[in-house]
Write a protein that binds this DNA or RNA. Sequence first.
DNA 1: CTAGCCTCCTTCCTATAGGATCTGCGATCT
DNA 2: AGATCGCAGATCCTATAGGAAGGAGGCTAG
Lengths: 260, 260
Amino acid sequence: MSDRAWVAARVQGVAHVNAPRTTEVLRRQLLRDEVYDALLDMLLDQRLAPGGSLSIDGLARELGVSPTPVREALAFLEHTGLVVRTALKGYAVAPHPGAEQLGHLMEARSVLEIEALRRAVAREGLLAGRLREAHAGHEAAAAAMVDAWGPASPPPAVVMRHYFEADWAFHLSIVEASGNPYLRDMLQGLGTHLHRLVQSAGRGVTDWQAALAEHGRILRAVEGGDPDQAVAAMAEHLAGVRERAVDDTLALAGRVADRT
Amino acid sequence: MSDRAWVAARVQGVAHVNAPRTTEVLRRQLLRDEVYDALLDMLLDQRLAPGGSLSIDGLARELGVSPTPVREALAFLEHTGLVVRTALKGYAVAPHPGAEQLGHLMEARSVLEIEALRRAVAREGLLAGRLREAHAGHEAAAAAMVDAWGPASPPPAVVMRHYFEADWAFHLSIVEASGNPYLRDMLQGLGTHLHRLVQSAGRGVTDWQAALAEHGRILRAVEGGDPDQAVAAMAEHLAGVRERAVDDTLALAGRVADRT
DNA sequence: CTAGCCTCCTTCCTATAGGATCTGCGATCT
DNA sequence: AGATCGCAGATCCTATAGGAAGGAGGCTAG
C-alpha cells in the first residue's frame, strides 16, 4: 500500500523537492509522490501544527509545484487520517489524539501484533532471523542516539527519526513474518499515527532501555520456540509502551494546562 | 474514514452524476465524492473488469466531468487496494484475489472481528440491542431476496446488494460496539475487498440459510452474556464463510479452467 | 456611543484547456 | 532478420477563469 512511498522516502532520502530544476532533470519521478513524501515528513515532524489549515495553493507555492499534485497527495493522505477535509473549507491537519484515542490506538495495535506474532511463530519461518536482525538494528540506533546525546543537548532530528524507525522495524518484521499482507498493511496504517504520537508526546526518547529489554524478551521467547511466552512478552511490552505513553501524554497535558 | 462516502452513497442513493446540470444546481455536492461513489459502484458491480486499465480521460468523458475530480477520486481509491497505479502508465483495476489472498483476507478479518467481539461483549454496552436490530434487517433482506427469486431468474442487482449490505451490517455493528474506531475503520477497509470477492465468486447468494443460522447463534450467545460462547460462534461462522467462499472460488476457477 | 447588519474583499475550491513528456507499435533501413 | 526512427495515444502537469464561503470594515438604528 503505502510501503512504496515510505521506502522510497527513506531509502533515497527525500529528494529535495525545492531544488531548482535547472540541470540534471534526467530520471524524473512522479511529482505526486514527492509531494506526498514531503507532506508526510512535515506532518510527522510537527512542522505543520495540528488543527492548522492546509492551503492547497500555499503548499503548491511553497513546494514550487502546481496545485494539482498537491491536491492529489492530500487526497491520498486523507485516507490515513492524518489530514481531515471539511466540505468546502479545505484540508486541515488532524488534531492530536487525546488520551482516549491513544488507548484505542494501542488496543488496536495490540490486537494486530499479538495475533500476528502468534501466527508468525506458528509458521516457524524466518521470523527468528529477521527479528534478530531488527533487534540488532534497534540496538545500534539506540547506541547512536545515546552517543549523540551531549550534556543537555538533544540529538539531532535525523538521529531520533532513525531510532524511531528502528524500533518500529522490529514490530513490522513480526507482521511481515506472519505472511499476511493485510495484517501488515493495517499495522502500517496505524504506524503513522503512532509516529506522530511519540513525536508529539515524548519529544525525546526516555524509554529506550525498557523498550530494548522488552524486545529482547520477545526475541528470546521466539528463539526458544515458545508461542505462549512470546505472546506474553509482547503483551507485556505493549502494556509498558502504553503506560509510558500515557504518562508522557498526561505530563504534556499538564504542561499545556499550566500554560493556560 | 471512508464512512462518509459509503453512507452517503447508500443513504441518498448514488445521485446520478450523469444527470444534466441544467436546473436544480442548488445543493451542489463535492464533485470528487460523487465520482468516487460512481467508481466504487462500478468496481463492486464488476462493471470494470479486473486487470483492465482505467483511463482518466475516458472516465472523465464517461461521467461528464473534467479529469481533475477523476484523478482525485482515483488517488483516494488507490489506498483501498481496489485500483493499482504503475509508474507512468496510469491506473488499473486490481486483479482478482486468488485463493491465497482470500485466505489472508479471511484470516485478517477473523483477527479483527473475534477480538472486537470479545471487547464488545466485555463492555456490556448496547451490543445486544444493535445486534438484534442488525439481525432483523438481515432476515428481512434475505426474505426479500428469496421472494424476488423467481424460477430460474436471479433477483435484481439492487436486491442482492441490499442483502450483502445487511449481512455486512451485522458484522460492522460488532466492531462498532467495541468502541474502538480504529478497529472499525480497519474492518471497513477489508469490507470493500470482501464485497468484491463475494460478488465475483458466488455470483449468487447460496449460503443465506447457513449465514442466518450462524448469525443467530452469535446473537443468542451475546444475549446470554457468554463471551467465550460468542467468540466460539463467531469463529465457527467465519470458518464457515471461508470454507464456502473457497468452494465458490474453486468452482469459479474450475469453470475458468474448463473454458481455456 | 454602541450594537447589529450589510457590503465588499480576500481567499480558496472547482473545472477546463493546452503544452510537454513518456510509452508502444509499426515502417523502414542496414 | 534485427535494429532504429517516427508517429499516434495516453498521461502528467501547468495555467487560468469562474464561483462560493468567510471575514473585515463601514454604515445605520437605537
